[in-house]
Nucleic acid binder design. Structure first.
Lengths: 344, 344
DNA sequence: TGGCGATGGTCAACCGGTTGACCATCGCCA
DNA sequence: TGGCGATGGTCAACCGGTTGACCATCGCCA
């Protein structure tokens, strides 16, 4: 414990060469004979030399640290983005300094100053979705900055947003591919992401000759239930529904079942988000849904910071479950129990 | 952007003093006349000097960085602990390097090495609850280490665990204070935390002359529902139930209502965890529950690292809701809708 | 045999702070 | 008037790497 760590100088002495040569050999720069390299690596091994990252950073003027400013780390979507970004950065040997700004201007400013002081190599901002513009912090930082899961209010900044329009299109294409034609959409009425999903969905269906009259509420299961009741009471004849998120879809499921409709035989059901809130692990297989691929979004933003220009795909993915897949066997007992728990 | 940052030397030149004096004045060490201090602070202001944290850390041999190894950052309980720890560390000017080990030995080792290389000042390990012992990493690190939300397998380490036994006691005391006497417990049968809650609950009631026969299942709403059915079908006469977590309590609520029982008039209901999984924000007011106070646990662990010996309280807290509080007005419409959504 | 490029290495400055040793000056007291 | 402690400051080494300039030696070719 705390025995003086071995330094480059120790290694140099042990190998009988200069400190600078050791540095060069370990960084694969400069020339050295095979014999000398071997002696140096031997010494490194014997003395268990691990370079002092602090000194290294200082000497290089690069901290090998990336700052991440996140508006709400406990929010599930942001945290997915964060997770994807962190993995990519860690793989590149970059550690991350995560700051939860908690929507506070003061905390945000404080963090920006702290990150600047620590000379981070780059900063990634993770916002709280596509609603509204994020106040740019780029001019207060002297390193590259990228914005993920939000759009900077400075057009010069690089922002990464999920493809909500594409998500809607994907849902529409899936339902069309199943031969459904009497299609409804239960949307959400206030957020930009929902609006884009609705547009992607409606436009794709319109182009295929199937006009849709979306109806709008909030993100809740209660709204999904209510919306289905409203559709059925109005006599609307549907064989497929796309819901703005999975909660709404769960509510819709209950509503459809309550009216004696079979899923997917009578009505195919598609959600969006690809997660159940019930115990932490994701469950899949039940609800067909669109996965917004948020870790890939974070990954793409991180890659942009590490190596600008690298192409990265973060398109939403269709996840087919039993609410659209036809002809599958009856659910087994475990699945059934899980499902009851889901609905409860 | 990227204009050469001002250094101590710039400030010293501007103030007409030596670099070392500036350093001493800014760190409040060493002596200087009022006049000189003023000139230095003026120069700092004018040149917008912000010390290079990288150089500072290097010179001091302290990184002002704390490593946090967390087994699953997306898990709600761990993340509460993390949040509490981060706030405390940030308040002390310490930035955190968070590593999500994802239960992988390899990643864990990798992180330990990385943290050691970066010369972090301390390391906090956040485990995944009181089940099992956490393999100590202290001997691979040359800085203080603390364990939160898990217990290290090395007795020499300092571990912080939630007081599950106290949580059970708290639930029992609350129900007793309401005059309930025919009390049941719906427990969970596999995890150590649940076991401790059960013991705290049962022991407290036994001491008060009210023996309890706990029944055990899993953490699900389905189990809560099933357990209530089982109790009622067995003819058990209860006026209060403590459930191992909130999910079970929700299920129990549905079961009780289905049997026409009023809550809290006929049966008082207490859960544990203090969160609803439905949309990210916590909702309260409905279910009486025990809050394990996990942010305070994280805070306490962080304080231990910053200033060992500091007393810190992280006892669980009783949160009284409408499932035990009697005599309150009927819920308003908004609450009712929220509740329906909760149950769905 | 003289010149030149390649090979294998050393030297010293530098990154930007911190810290202990040291020094000059001043006022006060004996 | 000599000595001493307090005041206000400077000097230089140090933290542990990195990097460009430079140098000696060697083999090869003209």
């Amino acid at each position: 414990m705390a025995r003086k760590a071995t330094t480059l100088a120790d290694v140099a002495a042990a190998a009988g060469v200069s400190v600078s040569l050791v540095s060069k050999v370990l960084n694969n720069t400069g020339r050295a004979s095979e014999e000398t390299r071997r002696r140096i690596h031997d010494a490194v091994e014997r003395l268990d030399f691990r370079p002092n990252a602090l000194a290294k950073s200082f000497a290089r003027g690069r901290s090998e640290l990336v700052g991440i400013i996140i508006e709400d780390a406990s929010e599930i979507f942001s945290s997915m983005v964060l997770r994807g970004a962190e993995r990519r950065l860690a793989a590149a040997g970059l550690a991350t300094l995560v700051c939860d700004a908690a929507e506070s201007d003061q905390r945000r400013s404080q963090f920006v100053r702290a990150l600047e002081a620590r000379h981070v190599d780059a900063v990634l901002v993770i916002g709280s979705g596509p609603s509204g513009l994020y106040p740019s912090v780029s001019d207060r930082l002297s390193c590259p900055v990228a914005y993920a899961f939000c759009e900077s209010d400075d057009p010069a900044d690089v922002s990464f947003l999920p493809d909500d329009h594409g998500a809607g299109r994907l849902a529409a294409e899936h339902l069309l591919s199943l031969g459904r034609t009497r299609i409804a959409h239960i949307g959400e009425g206030s957020e930009r992401g929902a609006e884009l999903r609705t547009r992607g969905f409606v436009e794709t269906l319109a182009a295929a000759g199937h006009p849709v009259e979306p109806i709008f509420g909030d993100w809740s299961k209660a709204w999904g239930l209510q919306a289905v009741n409203r559709l059925i009471e109005a006599g609307t004849d549907v064989d497929a529904i796309f819901c703005a998120n999975d909660f709404i879809a769960y509510g819709a499921y209950v509503g459809l079942r309550a009216h004696g409709l079979r899923i997917p035989e009578d009505v195919a059901l598609v959600g969006h988000d690809h997660f159940s809130m019930d115990p932490p692990q994701r469950r899949s297989g039940f609800l067909t849904t669109i996965d917004p691929n948020l870790p890939a979004l974070g990954d793409a933003a991180a890659r942009h910071l590490i190596a600008p220009g690298t192409a990265a795909d973060f398109a939403p993915k269709l996840v087919v479950g039993r609410t659209t897949a036809g002809g599958q066997a009856a659910p087994d007992l475990a699945t059934l129990l899980e499902f009851i728990d889901q609905l409860l």
